[in-house]
Simulated scan of single mutants.
Amino acid sequence: MSRKYVMILTVVLISMVLMGGTLEASTLGSRTLQFGSRGDDVAELQKTLNGLGFWTGPVDGIYGKLTEGGVINFQIAKKIRIDGIAGPQTFGALNISQPELLSRSGTSNASRYSASDLDLLARLVRAEAGGESYLGQVAVAATVLNRVKSSQYPNTIRGVIYQVSGGYIQYCPVRNGTINQPANASTRRAVEEAINGSDPSKGALSFYNPRYTSNAWILSRPRTTVIGNHVFVR
């Protein structure tokens, strides 16, 4: 090996170290992207946004301030959540499918749900379980999805959340308006995990906090598990 070749190789390796290693090979939509992310998918996002007129800086695969700014400008234009994070809503607005929202069985669940449905579910999870553990948040999201799959309830997320049965609104946040408060990063991740097939509720269709519930029907339902302050029931 020539001395010149060794010197070139050394320079390349040093450059990779200074850049924080090689860029991750990922398909756009396969993961949520945010400030600090690196990879082929970041480069694809930059290329896509630049092509739409939302400047993200050079296409270098590094999610820096310019890329974050381009994402924010795109979110403003599309009137979706403005957080500078390329997640389900942003990918939905870009018409990019998300492999990470596929069920673990390999069938596409994501295609059944719009970005607005996922945001609505994340807002419900925050209103119902914002003070609970992350596991508890995933469990609450799973109960809604379990209802969607059940013949006893509407077959859409929106239909389940806004269902009125016997004159009774199913979820307190819908009744008191807290459903309209924005979701956060934790509840959005919890929804994604539930969509992926995670169900800490063990097949539950409902949940309640025993300190605040006196409803005879829900208290009579068979328990599946208890997570934090919530009892999960079928």
Rank of each mutant, 00 (worst) to 15 (best):
F91C: 13
T67Q: 06
A77R: 01
S111H: 01
G64W: 00
I82G: 00
A93I: 02
F54C: 07
T90F: 00
N50I: 06
G84N: 08
A93L: 03
A86L: 09
S108D: 15
R104C: 08
W55T: 11
N50K: 06
L66K: 14
A86T: 13
G69W: 00
F74Y: 13
T67Y: 00
P88N: 08
S116L: 08
L120T: 14
T107A: 07
L102E: 14
G51K: 03
F54L: 08
D119S: 15
S116R: 07
R104P: 01
G70S: 09
T90D: 02
K65P: 04
G106I: 11
D83H: 07
D60N: 14
D117A: 13
K79F: 04
L66M: 12
A115R: 12
V59W: 02
S111E: 12
A122R: 04
I96V: 15
G53K: 03
L120V: 13
D60F: 02
L118Y: 02
G57P: 03
S111R: 03
L52S: 06
S108G: 11
V71Y: 02
F54H: 06
Y63C: 08
G57I: 09
I76K: 02
D117M: 11
N73P: 00
W55C: 05
G70L: 07
F54R: 05
R123S: 10
Q75N: 04
A77F: 01
K78F: 03
G106P: 07
R123K: 09
D117C: 12
Y63G: 08
S97D: 15
V71F: 01
W55A: 13
N50C: 06
A110F: 01
Q89P: 11
V59Q: 09
T56Q: 03
E68R: 15
D83K: 04
P88F: 02
Y113H: 15
I82V: 12
F74R: 03
P58N: 12
R104W: 14
L121H: 12
G106C: 11
G106W: 10
V59Y: 02
L102S: 15
R81D: 13
A77S: 15
G57M: 09
L52P: 02
T107C: 07
N50S: 07
A115H: 10
A93T: 08
R104S: 13
K65F: 07
K65H: 09
I85V: 15
G57T: 13
G64Q: 06
E100I: 14
G61S: 12
R104I: 12
G51N: 04
G69I: 00
S103C: 10
N50P: 01
S111Q: 07
G92L: 01
S116H: 07
A77V: 01
I80G: 05
F74W: 05
T67R: 06
T56P: 00
D119E: 15
E68I: 09
G61N: 08
L118R: 11
S111P: 04
I96A: 06
A122M: 06
P99T: 14
N95V: 11
G87V: 03
L52Q: 09
G69C: 03
L66A: 13
